[in-house]
Nucleic acid binder design. Structure first.
Lengths: 254, 254
DNA sequence: GCAAAAGTGTTAGTCCTACACCCATGG
DNA sequence: CCATGGGTGTAGGACTAACACTTTTGC
């Protein structure tokens, strides 16, 4: 058998029907009330009640990044946000088979596709909680914020996906300007500290935190916040260039 | 339109034919002659001459990790190796379309599938250079080692994939026992140092390197190497538990 | 003036860098 | 005995953790 025939045989072996389907999921983080939260969608069809991370599919001629932006916009309305691909989940038995049976006891042809085995490419996204009013998406009952601690309530393997996203966040974010994507553009140091403490899951010494973040040169003082009931805190903002893309991070300045 | 109808409409919109195909690529690193190298496959079909990273497809009911092990074994014969998923490449226009035209000027039906748009899930793998005798795989002319500096000679976007793999290696490996996967189980400190220097791309101070690696407790002295022409170097080996899986790394001890 | 939150200072310990030095071997 | 590469010691600086202290506000 010559090379050409071998390659033809290879093509015949694999083909579209022999390989898994691909989907995409987004872990959209927000920060509110000293808690780190993520956007989830609740779907109720018949007696089936599931909670999932926002997700969808990739068009035949659509960039992965465009698909992410489309899906994030669907759930949050936001357009220029920070996101990063962090994992792919693809166990051999990863499918909606069980959910499909509940949704469609008569096994309708139209829904059969959902029961296929899916590999899902996962992105995490960081958004400013205050900018968002969550609305039901196309065909989903409602989008809402879920504190990250409650990852257990997610369906499928979406709890694992969230856990993996948190690990990535924890590794990549602390003390980097990425944090700014979870905060309003102007913020106080205690606010920033509370955010970072929520991400890393432990308290930080205030004096040391201040020194570290200030000497890093990533923020600038821009005023004072007189609204509080105690001593006014200094207000800072992040210093930016524009798009700082370092190793797989798409970074849009506000 | 009720939820049920909306979901049916959604399924109809997407379906198998509306989404991209998935493939898998492996960047297999080895270390030899003070150089970091990767396994590449050269294929020649007609006048077409391309150099690619080992790759393939994922079976309908095959775990991603099984697919990686299968593909690595195909090129190297090795079975229990360290590997890690590090990126997904999936531009909208990512396809073999051009190569397909050259391979099959008559546009044969059998090969058409290869010209589709592919998203590829990428893994890096670390192997002991000395354990491997590269052989031609099924339908490929030859597998061979390519020094990482020559990433420019790779076809498609495989040069970018290699670059991304190196970045990941650089971020995750230094001073960690992962390095052991690129070395024989017994090695001298100068050997280990040369490896790490090749990965991070700069020289390290010898005394400081020794201290750091020894106090880290990851290696143990097991003898001396009298084979050299100079003062004998101490021989070390890595201390292991068995499978240490930290954050997405599948780790097999030798 | 007191409690509470914001912001500043100081000190001791740790780790890293750079470099000087000593040791074992082959020729 | 000397060139070469392997192995050890040490002083200075940077960074960090811990905690004592001061400032500003509302009540």
């Amino acid at each position: 058998m010559n090379i050409n025939d071998k390659i033809k045989h290879w093509a015949k072996t694999w083909q579209t029907e022999a390989i898994p389907q691909v989907s995409l999921n987004c872990v959209i983080f927000g920060f509110h009330d000293k808690q780190l939260k993520v956007v989830v969608n609740k779907i109720q069809v018949g007696k089936l009640n599931i909670t999932v991370l926002p997700g969808g599919f990739i068009g035949q001629r659509e960039d992965l990044t465009d698909a992410v932006e489309r899906i994030v916009k669907e759930s949050t309305g936001l357009e220029k946000i920070l996101f990063k691909q962090f994992a792919v989940f693809g166990d051999a038995n990863r499918s909606f088979e069980h959910e499909y049976s509940s949704m469609s006891p008569s096994h309708s042809k139209e829904l059969e596709w959902f029961s296929k085995r899916f590999i899902t490419i996962c992105y995490l996204a960081l958004v400013d909680f205050r900018k968002i009013e969550l609305k039901p998406t196309q065909f989903l009952e409602a989008a809402q914020w879920l504190p990250v601690e409650k990852s257990k309530t997610l369906s499928l393997d979406h709890g694992d996906i969230l856990a993996s996203a948190r690990e990535t966040l924890l590794k990549e974010l602390p003390y980097s300007p990425i944090a700014s994507n979870l905060l309003p553009s102007k913020f106080t140091l205690p606010e920033l500290q509370a955010l970072i403490e929520a991400i890393i899951g432990r308290r930080i010494d205030r004096p040391n935190f201040r020194r570290k973040i200030i000497t890093s040169g990533t923020i600038v003082k821009v005023g004072q916040d007189k609204s509080g009931k105690r001593r006014p805190a200094d207000v800072y903002t992040f210093k930016f260039g524009k798009k700082t893309s370092q190793s797989g991070i798409s970074y849009y300045a506000k």
